[in-house]
Design a protein around this nucleic acid. Sequence first.
DNA 1: CGCACCACAATTTTT
DNA 2: TTGTGGTGCG
Length: 798
Amino acid sequence: MKNTIESEFVSARRRFIRAHFPRLNDMQQEAVLATEGPLLLLAGAGSGKTTVLISRIANLLQFGCASDTDETPEHITQEDVDLLNRLAGQKNDPDYPTACALAAWKRVDPWRIIAITFTNKAAGEMKDRLEMQLGPAAADLWASTFHSACVRILRRDAERLGYPSSFTIYDTTDSQSVMKHILKDFNVDDKMFPHRMVLAEISRAKDAGITPEQYLQQAAKSGDIRKKKIGELYQEYWKRLYSAGAMDFDDLIYNTVRLLDEFDDVRDYWQHKFRYVLIDEYQDTNHLQYRLAALLADGWGNICVVGDDDQSIYKFRGATIENILSFEEQYKNARTIRLEQNYRSTGHVLNAANHVIANNEGRKGKTLWTKAELGDPLTLFVADNEHSEAQFVAARILEARGAGANFRDHAILYRMNAQSNTLEYMFKRNGIPYRIIGGTRFFDRAEVKDVLAYLCVVQYPEDDLRLLRILNNPPRGIGAKSVEAAQQIAQEIGVSLYNVLSRADEFPALQRAGTRMRQFVIQMDELREAAKTMPPDELYDLLLEKTGYLRMLQEKNTQEDTARAENVQELRTNIVNYMQENEAATLAGFLDEVALYTDIDSYDRSADCVTMMTMHAAKGLEFPTVFLVGCEEGIFPGTRVIGEPEEMEEERRLCYVALTRAKTRLYLTCARQRMLFGRTTANLRSRFVDEIPEEDLQVIDPRPAPRQGSGFGDHRQTPARPSAPRRPSFTPPSASKPASEPSFRLGDRVRHRAFGLGEITKVTPMGGDALLEVTFEGVGLKRLMLRAAGRFMTKAED
DNA sequence: CGCACCACAATTTTT
DNA sequence: TTGTGGTGCG
């Protein structure tokens, strides 16, 4: 380019825009300014990735492609250049808006940007932050998950593929349920073809873009009997979902890709619409998602993917690290920017994480660094068993709390959900408030699924799966036999089950329950009629009332059913919330939202609770103090990955993710002996712990092993011993109390390390231990177990 | 048809 | 150890 006033203007403009984002570091600014063409952003943990994404979008909206083009307005003057130079970063200057207008070039309309994230929560946060920075314009921007973006695209054109535009979404359990039925109907042994395995294979096939027919062809060619069978199951699965007007999670992506692939006008429409495509967490995309991203971005070629190959932990779900590793090959003109400065953790934490991940082979390679201080070294606590491990964690938390920290500053991460039990138990005894993320999700609970199934059937009666779920629930005298007969008929004459039920009197085979079936249909039809005019919340009330579902729970009157009834009520709250957030709230919209909703979305950091979750669930979160429990060979890394180098690398990445969640304090714990699934095992400490440099790790071992190196024999599995001796604090009633344990009585004034001064208001002896109710000043009532909490409490002298 | 009892298996799971 | 799913009986 000529060295004229134009080129001066271009560089001044770039400087000006750069200065518009003063709080970003150089690399972050580069990432924000590089708007055009393919961009790979390798963003390490805690490197301010989200801030960059937000700023990038802000840049597009405010300045368009100005920071990344040589194009200029006509008739540039020296004054223009001077203005930009003078006002760079001077946001308070009255002329600043003028300068901004001068700098802007081809500003982007918000609806031309699509930002895809992996969780609703991430999408929601992005939207919130954008709205905060940019005002209402952000509302028109697509910030959503892959799946909800696909639902939006499909709702518009699913009919092209033969699906009703009102298709329902099957979640994992729904898919499993369909597959189980298929296996039964096909007389296939669940042992030879476990439903989960078949579904995984189908998922893989869809990921590779293989239809059932293609799959069967391939199977025939290879002569593989097993493959042939799976092909048949795949075909039937496809057929059933298709005729139920349903898509599973994979279908949402798969069908969107098909839609864009096969229909030029549809592809043109979306490609033209989305001028800038952003994909977050790119390391976790699968092949299908990669294709979708490419299809969406192909129009303008402006695709920015953000990810961290070291944080890829979802290979088992089909994510392929290849997408990120080969991005530069896929897009020859791609630029790559690395964000390696970490703003989250202290030096020791980062150092440990860097060293652990350095043991992996298949990575792009990057090293996080920080300006922060070294901080405290990590602590490894070697516990005798899982109880003393939990005790250690509880003690540290109470200590910190006593020193002014909040419970919410602490997170406990474990490899598998089963590990949470012991911790929960210990926290309950010590009155530590906690919250568990994951495990059985709210929307996975039977009663919630039941009521949702009712809503689904109201919305779309052809949904056989949901219909079967509710048909005799609450019991209506429509037994398995009658249902089976009706299904048979439905299959024979090729109509939906609902259709058969609605004219059950026509079929002699259904005379037993025919009347009851028709009653049911009448009831559902009334609800469907009501649904046309009634708002979702009222419809919900009517449904509970009419179907007698709530009544059934209330009448049983057991503790469990009361909880279930509460959950059913809780779902109503969800409906009301949904209605408040969406002006044009419809039942269909609510069901969409629910289908794509997960637990982690509802994680709210405001409550003062310790957070417990799996390491997987912790991705993207951060906490001042993190406990990584169960750092043992056989648990983390798990038995299954030992001896599998690739799997081990994924496990190590998981470790990297876990370590980098911590801001300042990081505790690792392992137990010499642990009972899991009713088995007691002795495990070596995790190899990942050994990969942490000595200077970053302080080991606390209250009982160092008396003899060492006696070989593997010490660590092999031992059979369960139900009456194995336990730690003193858990001794059965017969054992004598340690003399040091103080005795507390009703009315005693006490001082607790974490909760401060209080008075014992109730003492309930319980099997050698005692449940204390203590009213603490400023904290309120806490229920504590004497044995567990006693060590944190002294009698207060008045 | 509904309930109770017993065998069996149990990484991780953004959608 | 815990939860779930299948079978058999009342």
